[in-house]
Design a protein around this nucleic acid. Structure first.
Lengths: 205, 205
DNA sequence: ATTATCTATAGATCTATAGATAATGC
DNA sequence: ATTATCTATAGATCTATAGATAATGC
């Protein structure tokens, strides 16, 4: 009963916040407008969300669900290209929505501040799931043996995320095409086909 | 006389702001502390810098100077690997300083919001200079002909910047090594040597 | 009676701007 | 006299918290 009421207020605040963020921008908007839309006091917002960042973190977690579900529906030995297609299409579907795109730069910032890139991976579900697929792909020889698969996986997701943040400010093409381009570049590199591998080694930390 | 005074106040505020940003974090710090350290009124800060973001943008421009100078000192036909080495070492020298590193996530955010990735390139000097080197390298066949050189160049800088933002939060290895690893991956891709190129085409906007 | 949820509100900080001061230009 | 630089300050907004209310547990 109390729990239900709490969750209801929280959800109302969450949806109101996302709506106001999209309308006014994350840093410009007033908490008061969020509280007004959710029909609670301003302080109730702070009771449920210590800061605006916490709302964005929840949005980020919500955005991960379609990706996770799609990955879980795939066999563990699926080709790495299939993993890419899944990540790209689920991610682009979620964030490609016109009103959400302007949140991407801030979401990227939150994701950098709040998650632990290259450490503590199990806490982030998409990161862990994609990481497992990269490990399997590396075992099958689909990835370069020069770089540990979990590092490759984190860099891939970092690339995807940075490209989305950039796209959120300058949507010069459909998001899906942008992510496909980034993925292609990630796999094949910028070197011309047939050229010798450059000599810079990757140092592990 | 007036101009000199103005510049002096501006510089005092700029340096005070960077110092306080490093000490307290960009979003946590109080403008009052910056003004106190610069020995001017709080409103003087707003006169010179409409927002904290403008201070960070100035820091970003300052950070570009060593890179620009080093690039200008190089012949236009220098190998693309030399360009990479120059960008990496000048950038890592500037941002690798322990006290500056915590500003990187915010600087990345500002750079996304304030600059026009994949458009209007001449406004940003490093971007323009690196872009020219990429074009020359593409003409010489040092880069994949599948992706336009200016797109490659922008993606390279985006990768470098995203990696720095990530490193600013989790400095798991020397920044220089991190950037060298990113560069290696950018050039060679994650595909195992000898594998056929994947079929995802890059769509131009 | 105790605790969780939420409101009211005090005090801190920011944003916007009217006005003071001193340099510049006529 | 006009303009640029800076200060003082009003009003807006945020952050922190004391207290009200209503559900829970004994």
């Amino acid at each position: 009963m109390r729990d239900r009421q709490r969750e209801e207020t929280r959800k109302k605040l969450y949806h109101a916040a996302i709506e106001i963020f999209c309308r006014d921008g994350v840093s410009n908007c007033r908490i008061e407008d969020i509280a007004l839309k959710a029909e609670v006091s301003r302080a109730a917002f702070y009771f449920h969300f210590p800061s605006k960042d916490d709302v964005l973190l929840e949005l980020l977690r919500e955005a991960e669900h379609p990706t996770i579900d799609a990955l879980n529906a795939m066999p563990l030995d699926a080709a790495i290209e299939t993993v890419f297609e899944t990540v790209i299409s689920t991610t682009a579907d979620f964030w490609g929505a016109a009103d959400r795109s302007r949140l991407l730069v801030d979401v990227f910032g939150v994701s950098m501040r709040r998650t632990t890139i290259l450490a503590d991976r199990e806490a982030e579900v998409v990161r862990a799931a994609v990481g497992r697929r990269f490990e399997k792909a590396a075992e099958r020889g689909e990835l370069s043996p020069m770089i540990p698969p979990e590092v490759l996986s984190d860099f891939y997701l970092l690339n995807i995320f940075a490209a989305m943040a950039s796209w959120g400010v300058q949507p010069i093409m459909p998001l899906k095409d942008m992510l496909a381009g980034v993925t292609h570049l990630f796999m094949n590199g910028a070197k011309p086909p047939g050229a010798a591998m450059t000599a810079v080694p990757f140092q592990k930390g």
